[in-house]
Design a protein around this nucleic acid. Sequence first.
DNA 1: TTGAAAGCGTTACCAG
DNA 2: CTGGTAACGCTTTCAA
Lengths: 333, 333
Amino acid sequence: MDDSNGPRVTIVTLSRRAGVSPSTVSRALRGDPRISKSVRRSIAALAAEEGYLPNAVARGLASGRSGLIGLALGPTENPLYTQLLQLAVQEAATRGLRFLVMHAGEGAVDEDTAGAILGYQLDGCLITSADLSSRAAEICARHRVPVVMVSRVARLHASAVTCDNRAGAREMASLLLEAGHRRFAVVHVGGRSSPGLEREHGFLERLAEAGLTPVAREEAVSSYEAGYAAGQRLVDVRPDAVFAVSDIIALGVMDALRAGGLRVPEDVSVTGFDDIAEAARPAYALTTAAQPLSAMVTRALDLLEARIANPFAPDETITLGARVVRRGSARLG
Amino acid sequence: MDDSNGPRVTIVTLSRRAGVSPSTVSRALRGDPRISKSVRRSIAALAAEEGYLPNAVARGLASGRSGLIGLALGPTENPLYTQLLQLAVQEAATRGLRFLVMHAGEGAVDEDTAGAILGYQLDGCLITSADLSSRAAEICARHRVPVVMVSRVARLHASAVTCDNRAGAREMASLLLEAGHRRFAVVHVGGRSSPGLEREHGFLERLAEAGLTPVAREEAVSSYEAGYAAGQRLVDVRPDAVFAVSDIIALGVMDALRAGGLRVPEDVSVTGFDDIAEAARPAYALTTAAQPLSAMVTRALDLLEARIANPFAPDETITLGARVVRRGSARLG
DNA sequence: TTGAAAGCGTTACCAG
DNA sequence: CTGGTAACGCTTTCAA
């Protein structure tokens, strides 16, 4: 390994040392089948010996492929997005892709950021924000940069990986109904998020099939605090089950309900959606519908790579099943 | 704005349309003072009109500056790192810098990742992991890439921004002592993290000055679950105050103590360090020492930019004060 | 199977 | 104050 200060070792350096042309070195290093096995091996050995590191920037300029994926992360107060980040980074690394952070947290992606981002010739974008109004997607579409949405419905020219929000919510409703619950409260997020909408609809739909309408419908943004506030409003309503469209909201609801003197689940069952890490904590033991996050990330990168390899590949939406995980926060059969 | 499919608008395109040389366009666009105001304005107007977007990749190759900062994020289960991410992304954007994610979560940075990272000619790195054994830092140092550590002590050739962990912990101890606590338990993280170590030492030091030693010293990793386990072990010890070196641990401790039948703070005061968002939730109301995260991020980027502008700038460590925020989890005077 | 040479879009050095 | 021109390190036709 080279620790010296000397001039950087490049493909040209190697080509001279090996007595072949730069093109040959370039091809050999990338495993081009046209190069003979013997040459390939000797060049690989030489590269290792000299401590050669390919210059991704130069490669990007020459090939038009940066190896970079733009990442737009949703509100990071929600642990869901953080889990997503971690999974995505690991999965991407194994594919030789890196993430350039375009956005993290709330608020829209500003034009400035988006523009600068395009300058890096991103190969594609992963958009995980639940926010419907993401500028980033629009800009990518305009410039024909492949986009995959995760946990969010497709829009514009984009592929998407979601979980079956509607079915998950329906299942939750069914289980609650079977267990005898009748006075339902729903905490939703209005029109802000497509998964939120689907979850609410799925739940209400199943209720309607049982001839029921909720005794309360509270609106919140997807945060613990908003959930807590909604929960406070529900104390006097005394529903016997509440369904929040995301776990982070459900946790707030649960704490507020308890602070209001109600016992969970004895007096009221509380359920959510996502299965974030906090949901499993003994203090909450939240019954929730789990998104198969890891699988979703894998499929998302599959989709992205496919679109990068073939720009004419059609947009595709993949829906993975959600699975209700039963914990102590709800009285189920 | 150009939405067409035509050849990309480059500096050369502009130079021809403007009847000047590419160098002039390049300089004008970057606001080089040598270019006359009038030319500067007309080129800027032309660029806007043509929808010109600077190619960051080409710029990186030519100038050696990528405009990219490598980011190594600690275990994202700890909301602290998530907050850090969000703040850093926002702050960096205002400075025209973007983050390339090198690492997120636990585990060491593998050689592969680090190597690929160098290929992007990162201008610098921000390392937020508390983990002492970060490979990334080593590799950056070897290649003379400026590094700033956040919430972590400096090592190798690196600058750092930390908060005064020792003083914060001492203050916490003082407040607890003044309020009459005598049976102390400490939950620490062993040698894994420098801030953790400093906090533990600060706390114990202050105790020693009062002639006390803790009645229990539990080791944990910095996670809720480990905190919960430590808390369970503390139930029978019945300390009248426990200090956990990080909030995420403290939350686990608190829940375990409560599950064990102890009331917080009536039977036992619980305190932490960091002031993560969860600490403020009514269900916890954790008394903790707050890290001035936002200021830390700002200073970290200052340091990084300074080192980028002047590679010979000396390493620098900035320590910001911690501030105890009193909430309901501890009986204080 | 390999080589030569022309870019990729920008910056930077050296003249003028 | 502005223009030429050579890099930057790699990929990619086109030839051989």
